[in-house]
Nucleic acid binder design. Structure first.
Length: 952
DNA sequence: GTATCCCGCCACTTC
DNA sequence: GAAGTGGCGGGATAC
């Protein structure tokens, strides 16, 4: 067939080529097509018959081998991107090939091709047909330029790429966003990205799957399908709304959970940890979020076939408004096409058509890796990382050092409220460094570190950055607030610092920056600090993602490449559960879909997610913070983050509750911005802190009391049982939730420290900036075994009731301490075996759950943990669950803090609008707002109704 | 006529 | 204020 050389040359492109083909096929209808070489052939011709890729490929190969192309290929430098591009292009576009051939063939010289190609393409571009200009093709060309598994980091200059590919930058952004969602690239700086290729893809997918499971997407899809089946008519776009009632739109329901996701805003990428950090301007990046969610659907779907409609509904569902708005629906669909095109180029999906009652539907079939690395919680980075920590030390150390330096000053003292510009800069620089490192690491760095380390690297970097930020935030907050209440905090902090000092490295390495310190400090947590690494790590590390409701960030250990990721889960979407959906239903609609289910990979026991709530939070928070200022508005934002932020958030929440301004939650994003919240008006902040603390304490107490309940709530309730009511949440409380970037995945590394964080729990909280807040720990989630189970709804896991007494204190401590979220703490304890999984003590969680406010003002019912002043509130993933959840159930936690931001709004109408989806937000909101009240009902609603339903 | 999805306006962010 | 980003949706092209 191909000459060796050719072969080599082709190798790289092969996949791509295949992808391209597929793409084409898909595009064209799934028909098969073409042999690359065959000059003309277009798609269908050859393969028409073959359906399977393999076949296709084989077929293609045959043709491909054909002389001509090879030549080209060969001639070209096999590995050169251009060569690849050429191949791809030729393969992809018959027209192009033809042209090339015509034009170039002659010369054959690959080179000529190369140069000419692009130029041609570019030139031709104008002439090219729409198809030829498709995003998928463009993506192919783009991908052809880089190796799947880059050794050293590859920097990508958008301008260059755009120029080379002859496309507008705008198009490149679309591609980059999708790639970023898969962690194939990470943004380095403006106009620059780092190419990671597929090195992190497996992990990312594994994480996404988990998250998806946690989100119950499968259920949602089924639900939707059912509805569809039931009401086919309704489907039509517009109707949906109406359907709602009748059918609570699938989307809607779905939304609920997803809603949380809506946070699309948060979408930051895992790999890019920093995203959160700084640079990113728009945290929203819905495209990224959408992309991740879209991928999750495939990963969770048994059939692996997801219809565009279903996907759109689910994704849209998140967007309340979208549901009703046809236009929005259309827009979403457009985006899905964009994403699908890129994913097709990546060969992750293939376009297919599903025949339904209604007719033929466009759908996509997952063609990516079937089996994904399990995410082991255990491995969870933490642990792994830790050890490495030492090794990694370098990084960690650095981070630590940095963080220490940054924070050191304040330990006892407070940190400046506001971040000093210089600090900010530092943080940024650090972040940048991280990024750089990350990028590099991906390949090399990691190697150096070791696998785990690798991951760690990035994560570390991220952590460092995060830590720095957090610290800064904290400092700032302290500075501001050193205020009374702070005493504790202060104490903690100092301790924290100390703790850090001691264990810092470890912690540092491990922990997420921010929290760690705090956590460490916390006496209760104390243990964690240093050692946390191992134990904590283990325990901490894993949060069940799945279990976690939406909000919960899950940390996944990255097995290899990637470190674990922290995923922000949206609030669980109860919905799915809510409706008992018969899977079968789904079937009708979609042939493929039918599956019911397996959850693809439910994480086995092995797979666990580490949630580092804190981490997540951080991320989220960071992100949020980064988020546009405007967003900040939502909250009241104080940016100061950290504990204060959390407090601020609380305060905000409280206010909201009290009638404070409903805050309009600006947007989900805003939520994230907690930091901003933090900033909350100065004096107020201090007060708020105190207030928060108090509330927290109260909350804790409450939790303890009601803990069980809350736990239940926390526990991942079986879907139905408890669907989080996102809506509920949002309604009131949502805000909190909102804050959380649901759905967003963050690489553990970035989070790093989660363990620590978790372990540490409390201390950090304060310190931790908003970001941290984000997390929550999902206790349940953390449980390894359950990972899957944990998933929101279903988490059967019993929660460590055990928390109880003993834990309780600890819990409180946590809560009080800024450290890690209580949830985390619980988690950890549970994992460690210190706490019984049972319902018992659940209190903490339960408390959270308790919906209502247990905690006091802010206490969110659902949430299990709240950090106190600090601010982390853990929410039960599924809000609903709480109720249901019985003892034993694991908890899902969500950090509420962010929500704070939202709170205002969330509470208000906006929320609804925002969140139609009840789900996600709600949980948070619930927590945040604590309007605990909301929770229960909300959750329930969720089940029943679409999110929106949730009563305001 | 519907399905796709390119194109580029424009708002938001960041520098 | 300029540049970078990215949401968004009009409308063209493909089927």
């Amino acid at each position: 067939m191909l000459s060796p050389r050719t072969y080599n040359a082709v190798k790289i492109s092969w996949t791509e080529a295949s992808l391209m083909y597929e793409t084409f096929h898909t595009t064209s209808k799934g028909d098969v097509f073409i042999a690359i070489q065959s000059p003309v052939k277009t798609s269908r011709t050859v393969l028409g018959q073959c359906t399977a890729f393999g076949d296709k490929l084989a077929n293609k190969m045959g043709p491909l081998t054909t002389p001509t192309k090879r030549r080209d290929v060969r001639s070209v430098d096999p590995w050169t991107p251009t060569s690849n591009l050429k191949m791809l292009i030729s393969a992809a576009s018959p027209d192009i090939r033809n042209r090339e051939k015509e034009l170039c063939l002659d010369h054959e010289g690959v080179e000529s091709l190369d140069a000419s190609q692009e130029s041609k393409l570019g030139e031709d571009a104008e002439k090219l047909s729409r198809k030829e200009k498709s995003l998928g093709l463009l993506c192919h060309r783009f991908l052809a330029r880089y190796p799947d598994y880059p050794g050293p980091a590859h920097d990508i200059c958008l301008d260059d790429v755009a120029t080379q590919l002859n496309v507008e930058r705008r198009r490149i952004y679309d591609i980059m966003n999708v790639l970023e969602s898969l962690h194939m690239v990470s943004r380095l700086v403006k106009n620059r990205y780092t190419w990671h290729g597929r090195s992190k893809l497996a992990q990312t997918l594994a994480v996404l799957r988990r998250v998806g499971e946690g989100q119950r997407y499968r259920q949602q899809m089924q639900h939707i399908r059912q509805r569809c089946a039931e009401k086919e008519f309704d489907f039509d776009d517009g109707e949906e709304k109406e359907n709602d009632e009748t059918l609570p739109l699938p989307p809607a329901d779905l939304e609920g959970p997803e809603l949380g996701q809506k946070e699309m805003s948060f979408v930051e990428l895992p790999g890019v940890e920093f995203n959160a950090v700084s640079v990113n301007s728009r945290k929203d990046k819905s495209l990224r979020v959408m992309s991740q969610k879209f991928v999750m659907l495939f990963l969770v779907s048994d059939p692996n076939v997801v219809s565009l409609e279903v996907a759109a509904k689910i994704l849209i569902g998140e967007d309340p408004a979208a549901d009703q708005d046809k236009n929005k629906f259309k827009t979403k669909v457009r985006r899905l096409y964009d994403i699908a095109n890129v994913l097709q180029s990546l060969k992750l999906i293939e376009k297919v058509h599903v025949t339904e009652e209604r007719g033929r539907k466009t759908a996509f079939k997952w063609t990516g890796p079937a089996e994904l690395p399990t995410i082991e919680e255990p491995q969870s980075c933490p642990a792994a990382s830790r050890p490495p920590a030492a090794s990694r030390v370098s990084e960690p150390v650095t981070k630590e050092t940095c963080s220490k330096n940054l924070f050191s000053s304040p330990p006892g003292g407070k940190r400046g409220f506001t971040r000093h510009p210089s600090l900010i800069k530092m943080a940024k620089s650090i972040q940048e460094d991280r990024r750089k490192i990350n990028s590099a690491p991906t390949s090399p760095a990691k190697s150096a570190l070791g696998d785990s380390s690798n991951q760690d690297f990035p994560s570390k970097m991220a952590q460092l950055a995060a830590i720095c930020k957090m610290q800064l935030d904290q400092q700032s907050s302290r500075a501001k607030g050193s205020r009374p209440g702070s005493s504790e905090p202060a104490a903690h902090k100092p301790e924290t610092h100390q703790g850090k000092a001691r264990g810092q490295r470890e912690e540092v390495a491990v922990h997420t920056p921010t929290q760690e310190p705090a956590a460490c400090t916390t006496p209760h947590l104390t243990p964690r600090p240093p050692q946390p690494a191992p134990a904590s790590s283990s325990s901490m590390s894993y949060l069940q993602a799945g279990g976690c409701s939406p909000l919960i960030p899950v940390l996944l250990p990255q097995q290899r490449s990637g470190g674990p990721y922290a995923v922000f889960l949206h609030a669980l979407r109860p919905n799915p559960l809510s409706r008992p959906k018969p899977t079968s239903l789904a079937v009708r609609s979609m042939t493929f879909e039918e599956k019911t289910g397996l959850s693809p990979g439910p994480p086995g026991p092995g797979a666990r997610l580490d949630l580092s709530p804190s981490a997540t939070k951080r991320l989220s928070s960071d992100t949020a913070a980064e988020g546009s200022p405007s967003k900040a508005k939502r909250v009241g934002g104080h940016q100061d983050t950290s504990p204060r932020q959390g407090e601020a958030l609380h305060a905000a929440r409280l206010k909201a509750r009290r009638g404070g301004p409903p805050s309009s939650r600006p947007s989900s994003r805003a939520l994230h911005l907690d930091p901003e919240f933090v900033n909350t008006p100065g004096g107020a902040a201090a007060v708020a802190h105190q207030f928060l603390e108090e509330s927290v304490e109260t909350f804790l107490e409450t939790e303890e009391r009601g803990g069980s309940d809350s736990e239940a709530g926390l526990t991942p309730v079986p879907a139905r049982a408890v669907p989080l009511t996102p809506g509920h949440l949002h309604s009131g409380h949502l805000s909190t939730e909102t804050l959380v970037p649901a759905g967003y995945l963050i690489p553990m590394h970035s989070l790093v420290g989660y363990k620590d964080m978790q372990v540490q729990g409390g201390e950090n909280k304060r310190s931790t900036t908003p970001t941290y807040n984000i997390y929550h720990t999902p206790t349940a989630g953390s449980r390894p075994p359950h990972a899957l189970e944990i998933t929101p709804t279903g988490l059967p896991r019993p929660r460590p009731a055990g928390l109880s007494p003993q834990t309780a204190p600890a819990y409180r401590a946590h809560m009080q301490s800024p450290g890690p979220s209580p949830a985390i703490f619980n988690f950890t304890l549970q994992n460690l075996g210190l706490i019984p999984a049972g319902p018992g003590p659940a209190g903490a969680q339960q408390q959270h759950q308790t919906p209502e406010r247990g905690p006091g003002p802010g206490a969110s019912p659902l949430l299990g943990v709240h950090q106190r002043g600090g601010v982390l509130f853990v929410k039960p993933l599924s809000s609903t669950p709480l109720q249901q959840a019985g003892p034993g159930q694991p908890l899902a936690f969500i950090s509420v803090q962010q929500p704070m931001m939202t709170t205002p709004k969330g509470a208000g109408q906006p929320q609804h609008s925002f969140f139609h989806t009840p789900g996600p937000l709600s949980p948070l909101a619930a927590m945040a707002t604590h309007g605990g009240h909301a929770p229960a009902s909300a959750t329930q609603r969720k089940l029943d109704v679409s999110t929106q339903d949730s009563p305001p």
